[in-house]
Design a protein around this nucleic acid. Structure first.
Length: 332
DNA sequence: CTTCGAATAT
DNA sequence: TATATTCGAA
């Protein structure tokens, strides 16, 4: 290949909680003459990105099943820095792939990765740049001839219609969020999850959730409906783990087993181990937001901030509001 | 009376 | 499929 055109020195950041696979990746990427930084921990990786945003060209991130922290990284990174992000997973069912691609992933690769695939990842950096320039010139109708931007990507929708009443990344009113019927966006779902988690799973009933969420014009029925679906989802996923997780008790699977056990008593799916915690409920309570505003104290007890959160913060920015939450069902 | 959630409807 | 509405139970 032409030396002059080969993007050697491309700075790639790899995140994977499996350190041995991290080594494999590093070795492969170095063979491609990329510059490699590896992180095993999502939070450390994010704080690195925040400190070195100009020095990261591309991110390769494991899905981090079941917490799916990568989804958060994806949203954060694509919205704030526009760094192309490639997701990798050993499981590549269509629904999962679709979810990541629609949330802005540049590619979704199935483990184990071959060097041939890694040799080509640089193209995502240029795709992204070209796409951005293209967008600047004629922001009219560019119907994306790029194969990886098929579905409505958030950045496209975010700028257009809909100004969501939000404050500090927190949805406080759904009037603008709903066309004919309420759409559960990522952010709205986050607030829902946060509310469910802050109550016990047993105490999480529609009215209390509604109360904690503090979203105007959201009804109990809407929350109830969403809660119903949420619980269905939980049942399905724990059931799924029963199936393909061998009942062996190898210590490596302890976290999966923990998942199984907890789902019955606790909704862990979205709050496990550093995955998006909505710790900041700062509420601007504008006008008629009813008299629920006095319960702040109770809410603050949920302010667990695990090790080394450092300067890294989940700031959902404008991204993700228009993205409806995708339930994680298996498509079999 | 209110609130729950499964079932059903759209 | 995702969200809304219904309705019998608690």
């Amino acid at each position: 290949m032409d030396q002059a055109l080969w993007p050697s020195g491309l700075r790639v950041l790899v995140i994977d909680n499996n350190s041995s696979y991290l080594s494999v990746m590093e070795e492969l990427l170095i063979k491609c003459s990329y510059k490699v930084t590896t992180y095993k921990n999502v939070r450390e990786a994010m704080s690195f990105i925040y400190g070195n945003q100009q020095t990261v060209d591309l991110i390769i991130c494991d899905v981090f099943f079941p917490t799916e922290d990568s989804l958060l990284i994806l949203q954060e990174v694509t919205s704030k820095f526009g760094i192309p992000t490639v997701i990798m997973s050993s499981n590549g069912d269509t629904a999962t792939v679709m979810k990541y691609i629609t949330n802005g992933a540049s590619d979704f690769l199935i483990k184990p990765l071959r060097i041939e695939e890694l040799k080509n990842i640089w193209q995502h950096v240029f795709r992204k740049q070209i796409g951005a320039e293209h967008r600047k010139c004629n922001n009219a109708e560019h119907v994306d001839q790029l194969p990886y931007r098929t579905m409505g990507i958030t950045e496209a929708t975010a700028t257009l219609d809909s100004e969501i009443r939000e404050n500090n990344g927190t949805v406080t009113d759904i009037r603008d969020l709903r066309k004919s019927r309420l759409s559960w966006t990522m952010q709205l779902h986050r607030q829902f999850i946060a509310a469910v988690n802050s109550l016990g799973s047993d105490k999480a009933v529609p009215n209390k959730i509604l109360e904690i969420m503090k979203v105007k014009h959201l009804t109990r029925e809407q929350v109830a409906s969403h809660l119903q679906k949420y619980r269905l989802h939980q049942r399905n996923s724990s059931q799924r783990l029963h199936k393909d997780g061998a009942p062996s008790s190898s210590s490596h699977e302890s976290s999966i087993l923990r998942t199984q056990l907890n789902t019955s008593s606790n909704s862990l799916y979205f709050d496990q181990d550093g995955c998006m915690e909505i710790t900041d409920y700062s509420l601007p309570m504008d006008d008629l937001s009813s008299g629920l505003d006095c319960m702040l104290g109770e809410r603050e007890r949920n302010n667990y901030s695990p090790e080394g959160f450092q300067n890294f913060r989940w700031d959902p920015d404008k991204q993700g509001y228009e993205t409806t939450y995708l339930w994680n069902f298996e498509a079999e």
